[in-house]
Design a protein around this nucleic acid. Structure first.
Length: 463
RNA sequence: GGCGGCGUGGCCGAGCGGUUAGGCAGGGGCCUGCAAAGCCCCGUACUCCGGUUCGAAUCCGGACGCCGCCUCCA
């Protein structure tokens, strides 16, 4: 079973399942107030890999990831652009869905929208008020963090030190600067929902508690997201649940940032590359490979250099797939372990890779094994050991598939009659050892954009 | 101010006390008519200074540099 670093325990722990064989995970999704960027891509890819790995191992994964479709920034943009909040949210949700599909991120089992759960949020807030852990002010309802004994576990600090560093002035009626909004009362021109404590909209932290509990039930197995959500978002979610004696999430996982020139990429720094920009200019698999190449908790540097680096590695993988005609195995959505993919030396590879991945998702370690195996398979094939070469190659492809990376072994291209005749002529020239003519024909093919390679079967071309 | 993280060879990036990470780029070689692909070999690496140890990139202490969280952010 997969072991992952748990942010509350502060150590790597084996995941546990509330219901054996069925894994429940909640990943905080995007606020659809703008175009998704590389940071969104990273968290999606990381947790997609976790999901795929569990699934590959025969576990049914219930993967919930929300869409926050009401929020201050959505309202601000709607106002700036003189359109409705719904319009803004719909546009960026559509962009989100497209980007996820392009990245090969499997669609969530459920994708709850915050606006569809407002009634449940209101009910939760009422309960928190009745328990006297939340209080109303003139502009909203706030959660009193002093009522949660271990508030700060995720931040790794106690309440006093958090309070000391708080950069928010206590100019309102909040009891503590750390208290956070459960409900924001409506202001002029804002969308709102009715509530006993005044019309308004839910706070972000309340949304995820309600949606995760509603769809996965209490004590679900893993709550994950980007490191920047650890505090205060996840801390605050947890506070609301814990104060009501709920177990909430059994494990908490956080992935590292995307860095841009030594700075964290983020909305506040306005230094982000959108996913559509990325996907328009690179192989769609390049970012996934980049993400897999570093540990999920480490920061990653995404640049033109690291991306093109990944693209070259993909070319090598595709060449490999072509050599072993692995195309039929490519591009499957959620792979399940199949014994037929892992025979002989391939089974050994599966074992070794599993050991790495189960150890806090050591994808860099797994990749190094896969690349080693790739070389070994090529080597075996070079020396005519076809059986073991094929065992390895099949396993390599299946394991890349398990990580969501499909190898493109396709070679069928549209070849015009003219191009085909050049190929035929070249083979004839080569048969006559007329190298000058063969080279001239090769140059002509290359001039048309083909990559030309000689094989035992003659000239092979591809784009 | 509080808390946390990082500093590895040209670049990216693993490493959690002793043995090859891996990728990309570069050099040499094998194979090939020449290429391409593939395979093999190679590189000045662990910020610095102390310490622990038979042995440290890896543990401890210190210095320097960098980043993040404590506010919306994946």
């Amino acid at each position: 079973m997969l072991r992952l670093y748990d942010s509350v325990a502060g150590e790597v722990r084996e995941l546990e399942m509330r219901d054996p064989g069925r894994f429940t995970m909640y990943v905080c999704g995007p606020t659809v107030s703008g175009s998704p960027h590389l940071g969104h891509g990273r968290f999606s890819l990381v947790w997609d890999v976790v999901r795929r790995w569990l699934s590959f191992n025969g576990i049914d994964v219930n993967y919930v990831s929300n869409i926050t479709d009401i929020d201050d920034r959505i309202i601000a943009r709607a106002r700036d652009e003189s359109r409705s909040e719904t319009d803004v949210a719909d546009q960026y949700e559509a962009e989100w869905v497209d980007a996820m599909a392009a990245l090969g991120v499997a669609a969530p089992t459920s994708d709850p929208h915050a606006t569809a759960f407002v009634d449940e949020m209101v009910a939760l807030i009422e309960e928190l008020i009745s328990r006297d852990v939340a209080y109303e002010t003139s502009d909203g309802v706030y959660f009193d963090v002093s009522t949660v004994p271990d508030y700060g576990v995720l931040a790794g600090q106690d309440v006093d030190s958090l309070r000391a560093g708080a950069r928010v002035e206590t100019v309102d009626e909040k009891r503590s600067p750390l208290d956070f909004a459960l409900w924001k009362k409506v202001k002029e021109g804002e969308p709102s929902w009715h509530a006993p404590f005044g019309a308004g909209r839910p706070g972000w932290h309340t949304e995820c508690v309600v949606m995760s509990e509603a769809l996965l039930g209490d004590g679900f197995d893993l709550h994950a997201g980007g490191l920047d959500l650890k505090f205060p978002h996840h801390e605050n979610e947890r506070a609301q649940a814990v104060v009501l004696n709920k177990r909430f999430a059994r494990r908490w996982g956080h992935n590292g940032w995307v860095m841009v020139g030594n700075e964290k990429m983020g909305k506040s720094l306005n230094n982000f590359t959108t996913l559509s920009e990325l996907l328009a200019s690179t192989d769609q698999r390049a970012y996934r490979l980049l993400v897999l190449r570093s540990h999920y908790r480490s920061p990653i540097e995404v640049s033109k250099v690291t991306l093109s680096d990944a693209e070259r590695a993909l070319e090598r993988l595709d060449t490999f797939a072509r050599r072993f005609e692995l195309a039929p195995r490519a591009g499957q959505v959620i792979e399940r372990h199949r014994d037929s993919d892992f025979a002989g030396v391939g089974e050994q590879l599966l074992h070794n890779v599993s050991t790495r991945l189960d150890d806090d998702l050591d994808t860099p370690g797994a990749l190094s094994l896969l690349f080693d195996a790739l070389s070994s398979a090529n080597s075996a094939a070079d020396s005519g050991e076809d059986a073991s070469a094929r065992e390895l190659a099949t396993a390599v492809a299946a394991l890349f598939g398990a990580l969501g990376l499909s190898l493109d072994g396709s070679s069928d291209q549209e070849v015009s009659a003219h191009t085909q005749s050049l190929v035929t002529e070249r083979d004839a020239a080569r048969a006559q050892r007329n190298w000058a003519e063969a080279d001239r024909l090769r140059d002509e093919l290359v001039g048309e954009g083909w990559i030309v390679e000689d094989s035992t079967g003659g000239t092979v071309i591809r784009r």
